[in-house]
Amino acid sequence: MARYLLRRTAQAAFVLWAAFTVAYVLLQLLPGDSILIKFQNPELGLSPRQIQEIRAYYGGDVSPLESYATTLLGFLRGGFGYSIDTGTPVVERLAEALPATAVLAGSGFLLAVLIAVVIAFAAGHSRTSWIRGALLAVPSLFVSVPVFWLGILLIQVFSFRLGLVPVIGGSALQQLVLPVLTLAVPIAAPIAQVLARSIDRVQAQAFVPVVAAKGASRWWILWRHVARNAALPALTVAGVTFGELIAGSVVTETVFGRNGIGRLTEQAVNAQDTPVMLAVVVLAAAVFVLVNFAVDVLFPVLDPRLRAVTG
């Protein structure tokens, strides 16, 4: 087990490093000198010397390799450089934006899992084929809906038509309801699909009729036997979609005008603020790697067969 954890940690660290490097190459090296692009604008009226000083301030006057090393070391120490747009440390901007997004993404994820579980188990329990078919069609519909459009639609229906949620003002909770729903729907879809499929597969396994032959009801079988077996593939997908939460928050926060990591990302792209973008990409990759690491470690706990292999 210790060896497995060690190997898995090394792998996670590698992916994180590689994601940083790829993003660094794409964002810092290839576009050329982003500081020059921004400050050479004649409207600013800066002299070449002033520009030179600004470059030195941002650390732009060193060789690419040196600057890569500095940036990497900075990231390892928790310093992400300075925003080109506002000149403030990227860390500060991230720290400002993170709590709101964490609340949004966290609740969105929980709601998504709840929706997925309800759909998948209802479909797994249902014997009426049209009900089952209808339930199983829901996830396909969910993945086909553009997130931004869903958000707009919800605002239209709940705020403008029904007047249930105020467009401006309202309590923090009221402001959270629609964005969370918007974010949860596309995340719920893949989890529900995989969970439903894996419930079907487990229900077709040979041990299910054996449990039934003991005198167990369908619900008992589904809940006490099938659920835990079916959870594993769904857990994997849930881990993978966790990364999509940050992407989803970009759209959701834009549509609902909320502040957070997503909004920050949008501003960074508009302003070509590459240090901020780099930090966001690495943050997303880190969340993804950590969550999937946790999922992998959780696997043997849920499935005793994996304990021997990893031990």
Binding site: L16, V22, L26, G243, E244, I246, V269, V280, V281, A285
Partner: peptide, 16 residues
């Protein structure tokens, strides 16, 4: 590595 970065962020990076 590609998988670890959400699709939209990767796309935004390419757009930058």
């Amino acid at each position: 590595v590609l998988l670890s970065v959400p699709g939209l962020l990767l796309a935004l990076t390419v757009i930058i």
